[in-house]
Design a protein around this nucleic acid. Structure first.
Lengths: 199, 199
DNA sequence: CGCCATTATGCAACTAGGTGCAAAACAGGG
DNA sequence: CCCTGTTTTGCACCTAGTTGCATAATGGCG
């Protein structure tokens, strides 16, 4: 249940309309929690219904722009949520599943996918580096915005990790080259994980 | 849509019943794609209906154990999926959102959460290291199971990244200590992101 | 045999995110 | 003023994952 809190945070930073929020999600908050405009409008209505935000007084009708502002109850809810016990979400990474599948059905087409992902992660890293250069120049390091910088560093670090991992994995996949099925159908039993069941 | 393929992969590795699959998800596949037994049973029925797997001939009735096996169509589907164009899923990380929220409403309670997450990630790293020591001992490196090892290394790398990041971030959060709201309500406008809108 | 804990499968309802499309308001040109 | 394209909000439906609970079979024990 993070979307409502993401929206509250965005509105605390700056009261906005739904469409403005959508644009800010696309370019900033969405790096770590993406949302479509439909989701955002739906959630704005719920938040207003629940008394956490309110629309600035305007005769409300369908296509008319509505500017929202966070109410004290909303701010309190965000503060509560920041301190809340919340376990890290389990990793869900289809690419790793596909790698595992490739050990059984063969690696045909896998290298192409790895290369494509590598390119995408490099692109994302470059984007983050641009933001860092712009918003956190070395001269005024250790300012008020240490936390913001850490958030960005998480993005930088994750992309860097994937680039390194993909590079290493790709090298082995290209070297191995067992494109066909690793073994005939029917003999696949009991191959993976000799008790410990790794990765 | 990864669950059906995860199940197919698991069944290719070793034909199993629903409950066996559930246990293997808990201890191995689920590290990168978790699933409950209810999800697994539901998906097994769909996969059978669609002709990708079939249950070994047994008089079928409610609580009776059913062993499943992958059909050729199922294996082909997995091979197709391995090579399929599939963009990396966008990051969804509530902890980073909460950090961002903390820059607005204050960091009260945040350090505790960071410490808790740090402990959990250290635990998970230790688990992965145990598996690596057991399944990939240094003497028989570079064997047939290079790919499996890379999968595990992804887990190791991610946990390592989070541990480092949490350690650095925690240091700053504990140093800063602006536990209360960073600024009075109402003046929050236009603070975050001077155009570039970082992190 | 009768009882009970455990194994094993499964349904139903709910939550949250994703997709497609519609409709009201607004802005500008003719 | 009217038409048209764009902005802005929103509904309806769908898919996937989660939670709570139900029910059948099985294996041991008295």
């Amino acid at each position: 249940m993070s979307l409502p809190h993401a929206i509250l945070t965005a509105l605390l930073e700056k009261p906005s309309s739904g469409l403005e929020l959508t644009r800010r999600f696309d370019r900033s908050i969405g790096f770590f929690w993406s949302a479509t405009h439909q989701q955002i409008y739906r959630e704005l209505n719920r938040l207003e219904r629940d008394g956490l935000i309110h629309a600035l007084p305007q005769p409300p009708s369908r296509g008319r722009r509505k500017e929202y502002e966070v109410l004290p109850a909303g701010r309190a809810e965000v503060a509560r949520w920041v301190a809340e016990d919340q376990d890290p979400r389990p990793v869900r990474e289809p690419l790793l599943l596909r790698l595992r599948a490739a050990t059984v059905v063969g690696t045909a087409g896998l290298a192409t996918e790895l290369r494509r992902h590598l390119a995408l992660h490099r692109e994302q890293l470059a984007l983050y580096e641009g933001i860092e250069a712009h918003d956190f120049p070395p001269e005024r390091a250790a300012g008020e915005n240490r936390l913001q910088h850490h958030i960005l560093r998480a993005g930088l670090g994750l992309e860097t990790f994937w680039i390194e991992w993909l590079t290493a994995t790709l090298a082995d996949v290209e070297a191995g080259g067992s494109d066909g099925a690793a073994r005939g159908p029917g003999e696949a039993a009991g191959v993976q994980g000799s008790g410990g069941e790794a990765g």
